[in-house]
Nucleic acid binder design. Structure first.
Lengths: 184, 184
DNA sequence: TACTCCATGTAACCCGTTACATGATTAG
DNA sequence: CTAATCATGTAACGGGTTACATGGAGTA
């Protein structure tokens, strides 16, 4: 059986309080979203796959006040597989596609003023993101989950790299302004 | 015509000295790789697409000392399309999938010592990456391209965020050590 | 009545990587 | 002779998003 990392993400989420595909999606959107987005189109088939490979079990639960649901529980084998994966050294560092950098790479093709507004826009978006992280941080801090410590560490990462990006925006904007002034 | 960002990347590269698919691939590997990787499987079909949409023209060039090649030249329409795209506000901030954070998110499932070695490994890989950036920086600094200034700015971004990540690794490792010591 | 939340699922499509296929020229 | 560099391409596959389909229960 070959599993991609998203499979492990979903397997890992079964070690939290999450029991259903719906709950998994909610937790992802609340706490994992900043470094691993997953859509329903992956969640439900993957849960099925986990059951097929005996890494989890399902059972349907009838509810009176809400639609019925399927509860998934990680098996002993599932936990072992998860731990094996956790122990494996990381294969690749994040190397994301970065739209801002791509545009900047070709910015000699446009006026400096336009590049500067582009950067200001990016800086603003980054600042919003920073505040969002602070919000998520608060909500996790108030949750009683035993994973809380580690979850906060992932947020710390997001905050720090975002901070660095914002600083870079600021400095780059100033640099371009200086060059502009120098040419006049 | 709907174009994805990779199409614009290749269109943009036609504004540099690059004229052939092969040269484009080389420049990507040397200078763009840290934020936008592109494989031959995309380059050649995309070049064809650019020609079909009249954003570039081709002509075959016979060479005696080397295999024949196809030279692509960006058209006026192509430059306009590129500039329109450059002017458009960025749609999304980078939100990469991060393997380190994913593992860390579930690290309450394993011993702290294992998590610490995972982080040390990550820190080392990040440090290597930092040195690689410095290397690319040197090679770009010595190139006479008019795009040099902007290319260096993209590298500055890489260096800064990598630095922030390394700091985060260090601090996190220390934090986990402290917790470990506290429990003993 | 309409909207939101709960809940599960699939099919079409897009994007991108990998592996394969081909072949000329030059240097060791 | 062999490896490396130059050079172009495609087919298969995998992963992921989006849109669609369905439908109950509660609330404004």
């Amino acid at each position: 059986m070959k599993e991609n990392q998203t499979t492990y993400a979903i397997l890992g989420l079964l070690t939290t309080e999450c029991r259903t595909g719906y709950e998994i999606k909610q937790l992802i959107d609340r706490s994992l979203n900043h470094f691993w987005k997953i859509s329903y189109g992956q969640i439900y088939p993957t849960l099925q796959k986990l059951v097929n490979n005996e890494l989890a079990t399902v059972n349907s639960v009838a509810q009176t006040d809400k639609p019925d649901k399927k509860e998934y529980v990680i098996t002993t084998k599932g936990k072992e597989v998860l731990q094996d994966w956790l122990r494996e050294p990381i294969k690749q560092l994040p190397s994301e596609r970065n739209e801002i950098l791509l545009k900047l790479f070709f910015s000699s093709q446009q006026e400096k003023q336009l590049t500067i507004s582009q950067l200001k826009n990016a800086q603003q978006k980054l600042t919003e993101r920073y505040h969002m992280y602070c919000g998520i941080e608060d909500s996790i801090s108030n949750s009683p989950s035993p994973d809380r410590t580690y979850w906060l560490i992932t947020l710390d990462y997001g905050k720090r790299t975002t901070c660095a990006s914002i600083e870079w925006c600021k400095d780059t904007i100033n640099k371009l302004y200086d060059e502009e002034a120098h040419n006049l």
